[in-house]
């Protein structure tokens, strides 16, 4: 029966020679994960039954939320496991080839770039920082320390009591606006301090509360590619910044090391 090839990622052959591939089951929970060598680089793959994972079968499967949940996590866990042992170019979920020849020709086409990328990634790892913000705490700070607000308050003090009432309500609105600006400014200041330890950075989208399931709001989400040698300094800097910003209502959440999903690019 025809079999497809599911590709998890690319690792250097010499690293695999010194550390044997851990044994685990592939995406279908049946076929074993194994490697295929192509002149210095290895593809980590598993075979899949064609009838169950062809285009239309896969489309049907991916429309099932629970299936997708389980398999996306399988992919993530497999790549993370590999990343613990090897330098890896992580593939996007569901990169599937019709057979050996097709995979071989694709890898041959990108061979030089893949080898270069592996060499560049070899001593690096990816970390993700999210900053969550307690609006109440930060609102107090903004209200007390923001220059625009301070000036406005002085202006209001000079006014007649009637106007003061109206202007104070306007001021509340202004504080809300300034609060949003302050969040952005402070977060990006934190980011800049961390970026100096990094080879590359990327700023990601903030997820809404519906998506995170948290009660506080995400106000910053970024990824850092670090040299292994700099990881410890980076971590202690994050810790230091967390201490500094705690009172402002900023809660840091740092995760890693991740495979270099955001920085492994072939183009």
């Amino acid at each position: 029966m025809a079999e497809l090839i599911y590709l998890y990622g690319i690792i250097p052959t010499n690293e695999k020679s010194t550390t044997p591939l851990p044994s685990f089951k592939g995406l279908d929970d049946e076929h074993d994960v194994h490697t295929l060598s192509f002149d210095g680089i290895d593809a980590v793959v598993c075979n899949l039954e064609e009838s169950e994972y062809n285009q239309s079968a896969l489309e049907e499967k991916t429309s099932d939320v629970e299936w997708l949940h389980e398999k996306a996590f399988h992919h993530h866990e497999a790549v993370t496991k590999l990343h613990e042992k090897y330098t890896i170019i992580p593939m996007k979920f569901s990169t599937i080839y019709s057979g050996y020849e097709s995979l071989e020709s694709t890898i041959k086409e990108h061979h030089k770039k893949m080898s270069d990328l592996l060499a560049w990634l070899s001593d690096k790892e990816e970390w993700n920082l999210k900053i969550y913000c307690d609006n109440e705490a930060l609102r107090e700070r903004t209200s007390a320390h923001n220059l625009t607000i301070e000036e406005k308050k002085k202006e209001i003090d000079q006014m007649s009591p009637g106007r003061q009432y109206l202007e104070k309500r306007k001021l509340d609105h202004l504080i809300d606006q300034e609060l949003e600006k302050d969040k952005e400014t402070y977060s990006s200041r934190i980011h800049d301090q961390l970026a100096s330890y990094s080879e590359k950075t990327d700023i990601k989208k903030n997820w809404s509360k519906d998506v995170t399931g948290r009660s506080d709001e995400m106000c910053w989400n970024s990824v850092y590619l670090l040299k292994e040698a700099n990881v410890e300094d980076f971590l202690s800097q994050v810790k230091h910044l967390q201490e500094v910003w705690k009172e402002t209502g900023f809660q840091f959440e740092l995760t890693g090391p991740w495979p270099a999903y955001h920085f492994a690019k072939l183009t």
Binding site: E59, K92, T106, H262
Partner: peptide, 17 residues
């Protein structure tokens, strides 16, 4: 990360997620 990031090299079977 796994559905959106990661290296994309054209596979033979494509799924839109």
């Amino acid at each position: 990360t796994v559905l959106d990031k990661g290296v994309v090299i054209a596979g033979d079977i494509r799924v839109g997620i």
